[in-house]
Simulated scan of single mutants.
Amino acid sequence: MSGKQQVNLLFGSDTFSLENAATDLIKKISPELDSSFGLERIDGLVSSASDAANAIDSTREAVLTRELLGGNKLVWLKNASFLDRSRLGLTKSVKDRLTYLTDLIKKGLPSGHFLLVTSAKIDKVAAFYRACKAHGHVEEFEQPQYFNQQTAAAESYLLSAARDAGLSISRDTLVSFYERAGTDRSVLRQEMAKLRDYMGDRKTITNEDIRIMVSPTRDYSIFELLEAVGQRNLKKALPLLKQMLFNGENPVGIIVMTESHFRQFALLKELDGKRMLER
């Protein structure tokens, strides 16, 4: 992003990247801003139309109100939950309030005042989105769609976080880390902080450190269990099964899926054998 845009809209499902971008943006707009001077946060994570309307009104009022001591001012409408085409976002009172805020964006904010809006979802055909795009900076942050992309992002983050903490981690241990904690980088950041405190003077993270300190928060799928069973990898399959049961998976469902999976394999093997005989 070049220059300092007065209006900034950041959205998407990748909350880790979104929050980092918001923090960087705040520093870029005015390095001296802090939580008590020049930066006003407004909670947009609401569940009712009245609370959403109040959040929008508070945002508009804050943008128009000058700082008593002068200087730059940034208003952050954080985690707005009413900018998509949900029932809340389509409520008339919310749409009416958003129209007032949209008009302000089109008209232009007071000099030295900045607006930052962050949200998980947004309606890209709405007037509010189009006004932000036309008169400010809009950026989308989406979680990687495919598993290999998610693991690649997790590996890259863990390597960087370990270096920043002055620690080293092998490839095998790194895989054990995200297999246990998942690929959500917000979770990985918390788990890495726990490890850093636990390590003391040691500099190399081991699999035993992962087992002791990293919380098993990842939701494993039946397909990963079936893959481990198919590979006859008991060492991998048993912890997967244990974690799935701990997470509340239905034991009968696991049995049915496993039986169906291997019945299909047996059928394919039988058909393949018949084709070989026909040749």
Results as ranks from 00 to 15, higher is better:
residue 125 V to D: 15
residue 205 I to D: 00
residue 257 M to K: 13
residue 235 K to D: 12
residue 231 Q to P: 08
residue 271 L to C: 08
residue 77 L to D: 05
residue 128 F to V: 04
residue 100 Y to P: 05
residue 176 S to N: 11
residue 73 K to E: 04
residue 201 D to W: 08
residue 193 A to E: 15
residue 105 I to S: 07
residue 14 D to C: 08
residue 145 Q to D: 12
residue 104 L to D: 08
residue 216 P to G: 01
residue 78 K to L: 08
residue 135 H to Y: 15
residue 218 R to T: 01
residue 99 T to M: 13
residue 166 G to S: 02
residue 230 G to H: 00
residue 12 G to L: 04
residue 72 N to A: 10
residue 251 P to Y: 05
residue 114 F to L: 09
residue 167 L to G: 01
residue 225 L to N: 02
residue 123 D to A: 11
residue 235 K to E: 11
residue 142 E to V: 12
residue 94 V to P: 02
residue 91 T to P: 03
residue 216 P to A: 03
residue 163 R to W: 08
residue 219 D to I: 09
residue 36 S to D: 14
residue 38 G to I: 04
residue 180 R to D: 02
residue 126 A to F: 14
residue 261 H to M: 07
residue 235 K to G: 09
residue 239 P to Y: 01
residue 3 G to Y: 09
residue 92 K to M: 07
residue 244 M to N: 02
residue 113 H to N: 15
residue 256 V to Y: 09
residue 115 L to N: 06
residue 156 S to W: 03
residue 165 A to S: 09
residue 39 L to C: 07
residue 109 L to W: 00
residue 17 S to D: 14
residue 238 L to P: 05
residue 47 S to R: 15
residue 239 P to G: 03
residue 72 N to G: 12
residue 162 A to P: 02
residue 62 A to L: 01
residue 66 R to G: 09
residue 99 T to I: 13
residue 150 Q to E: 07
residue 24 D to S: 14
residue 250 N to P: 02
residue 23 T to I: 12
residue 250 N to Y: 09
residue 264 Q to V: 10
residue 16 F to D: 00
residue 214 V to Q: 01
residue 117 V to M: 10
residue 62 A to H: 00
residue 49 A to D: 06
residue 70 G to M: 04
residue 78 K to R: 15
residue 182 G to D: 00
residue 82 F to K: 11
residue 205 I to H: 00
residue 102 T to D: 07
residue 76 W to T: 08
residue 64 L to S: 09
residue 106 K to I: 13
residue 104 L to Q: 13
residue 240 L to Q: 02
residue 222 I to P: 03
residue 130 R to T: 15
residue 202 R to Y: 01
residue 148 N to S: 14
residue 225 L to A: 06
residue 29 I to M: 02
residue 26 I to R: 14
residue 79 N to S: 14
residue 96 D to L: 07
residue 146 Y to Q: 10
residue 120 A to H: 14
residue 123 D to L: 10
residue 34 D to R: 12
residue 111 S to K: 15
residue 32 E to M: 12
residue 158 L to N: 01
residue 240 L to T: 04
residue 262 F to C: 06
residue 72 N to Q: 13
residue 93 S to P: 03
residue 251 P to W: 05
residue 119 S to N: 14
